[in-house]
């Protein structure tokens, strides 16, 4: 992983915008928006995941819940990404070698794979289980994995600030 030690990351930290964010009230502002957006990412996907597990909202079909809630998850995710990038550039070189940050990125990628697997593979057979309660095992696994991975992203994300 040679690129993690590249001096380019220091250049990122020296961008004027990085200095502007890191040295002003912008940082706590972005950070608080980041926390609210991240909480909304998990809060909005929570009902879908619990429905996949068969634990909550079973009177609604999985497709309806997912159609009405996942766009909110994405919107919040975009806000979290923009604010997260804003904070990242202020200390890019330390973040890329921070184990908590690295874990966060890995868990984020795994959460993405889990979501993609659900939407592109499993979702094709939606007619078989859209209204199912209790739900088939593979849906329970996907829902639980999603909650587990997103909680992991949060934990790793929060841990970033304790290492840096």
């Amino acid at each position: 992983m040679e690129f993690l030690n590249s001096p380019k990351w220091i250049d990122v930290e020296n961008w004027p915008i990085s200095w502007e964010i890191g040295g002003t009230i912008w940082f706590p502002f972005l950070e608080s928006i980041h926390v609210i957006a991240a909480a909304f990412v998990v809060g909005s996907i929570l009902m879908v995941d619990l429905r996949l597990i068969g634990f909550a909202a079973v009177k609604y079909s999985i497709s309806t819940l997912s159609k009405e809630l996942v766009p909110w998850t994405w919107a919040a995710f975009v806000v979290a990404t923009v604010t997260g990038l804003g904070m990242f550039i202020t200390r890019a070189a330390s973040h890329v070698v921070n184990p908590a940050f690295q874990w966060k990125m890995v868990l984020l990628a795994l959460a993405g794979v889990n979501m993609a697997y659900f939407h592109f593979r499993v979702y094709k057979n939606i007619a078989q289980w859209d209204n199912a309660a209790p739900t088939p095992t593979h849906l329970k696994v996907i829902g639980s994995l999603s909650l587990f991975l997103w909680s992991g992203v949060m934990l790793a994300g929060r841990w970033v600030g304790h290492i840096i």
């Binding site: 926390v35 809060g43 934990l155 929060r158």
Partner: peptide, 29 residues
């Protein structure tokens, strides 16, 4: 993190309900 997960549940419960009442989210509920 437990504290932030609690905030996530606040978002997924009362905040989502507020958005529903305002006609912005989950119209089928």
């Amino acid at each position: 993190t437990v504290h932030i997960l609690g905030i996530a549940v606040v978002m997924g419960s009362v905040v989502l309900l507020d958005l529903r009442i305002l006609g912005l989210a989950v119209p089928s509920q």
